[in-house]
């Protein structure tokens, strides 16, 4: 039971240090951290499916952009206020995730990757097709005046930081709880050996569907949060690149760990941020980092820590 208290302490420590970081870092890093926390939700959603359930999707940009445009369109064109728009975004993402889950989960392995890639590409092209409303690659800005919640101005850097923190904390605690339930443990069993999990009496098809649903909705939360806090929705976020990024973040941080997505997102963000100070060729750095990590750290940063130092790491 000592391990349990370690885990609780770790979760509390992570959340507390994110709060403390706000007060001790500069405004520039505050802005970065807010962005990292929102994007880490995307990575956590991705990790739930990839790291825990063992399903490698190459189409999560679809869920992220579903959340982003779900909120963006309802605020920009339907003139809804923040909360209803957020609800619309979640509902829309859930519907998209359910449809993709229903279709894509009939396949496995490489076919699953390509099917998700294709559906996401179709989604991206659909956004371009309806450029009149979505403004395509150029995107549209959500006016500052509309981005208020309970009278708070979400464009204010401090309020934005805490809003991002709230989204992150809620998602983080959800994941930390979910992976400890018998449902979450079964996902790991499916990742390890699906046929055996079925022979233990688990309805693996249902588990995989629910995992994809949760993963998609978390990605949508991140997309909607991003649109809301940074006031922008654009088709770039639906492109293949944004399907690959969460995979990259999770692999960097350590798949199948609660903490990995946050570490990976922050690491990748600052890798780009710092390397672009020295060179415009930051993609080269990112590309080389991916190749290097797949070759030498197949378990990611948190995964290596778990393997070498702390096997209890959740």
């Amino acid at each position: 039971m000592r391990q349990n208290s370690n885990v609780v302490a770790l979760h509390a420590g992570i959340l507390a240090s994110l709060l403390i970081l706000f007060f001790i870092t500069s405004a520039y890093h505050n802005g970065n951290l807010a962005r990292i926390m929102v994007l880490a939700v995307f990575a956590m959603g991705y990790n739930f499916l990839f790291g825990y359930t063992g399903l490698l999707s190459l189409g999560h940009a679809l869920f992220f952009s579903a959340g982003m445009y779900g909120l963006g369109i309802s605020m920009h064109h339907l003139e809804l206020s923040v909360l209803p728009a957020f609800a619309v975004a979640l509902l829309f993402t859930a519907m998209v995730s359910a449809a993709i889950g229903f279709l894509a989960l009939r396949t496995t392995g490489v076919a699953f990757m390509i099917v998700t890639l294709m559906f996401a590409q179709a989604g991206y092209l659909t956004i371009l097709l309806f450029g009149k409303y979505t403004r395509g690659d150029e995107g549209f800005v959500i006016q500052q005046a509309e981005r208020t919640l309970f009278g708070l101005d979400l464009t204010d850097p401090s309020i934005r930081y805490f809003a991002a923190f709230a989204l992150f904390a809620a998602s983080y605690l959800f994941i930390a709880w979910a992976v400890r339930t018998s449902f979450g443990r079964c996902l790991v069993a499916i990742r390890e050996n699906e046929a055996r999990a079925r022979m233990l009496g688990y309805d693996t098809a249902r588990h995989k569907f629910l995992a994809l649903l949760a993963s998609g909705v978390l990605s949508g939360v991140s997309g909607a949060g991003y649109a809301l806090l940074f006031g922008y929705a654009g088709a770039t976020f639906a492109s293949v690149q944004y399907s690959i990024l969460p995979l990259l973040w999770v692999l960097l941080g350590g798949s199948g760990t609660t903490l990995g997505p946050l570490i990976g997102t922050a690491f990748a963000f600052y890798l780009v941020d710092i390397s672009s100070e020295f060179t415009s060729a930051y993609l080269l750095v990112v590309g080389a980092a991916i190749v290097f990590l797949t070759l030498f750290f197949p378990q990611g940063l948190a995964g290596e820590i778990r393997r070498r130092i702390a096997p209890w790491l959740p």
Partner: peptide, 20 residues
Amino acid sequence: ERTIVATIGLLYCIQQVTLM
């Protein structure tokens, strides 16, 4: 699976070197 990820890395490298 790992080759997919690695070739994604290659993609970025080749693109960037060409750009430069």
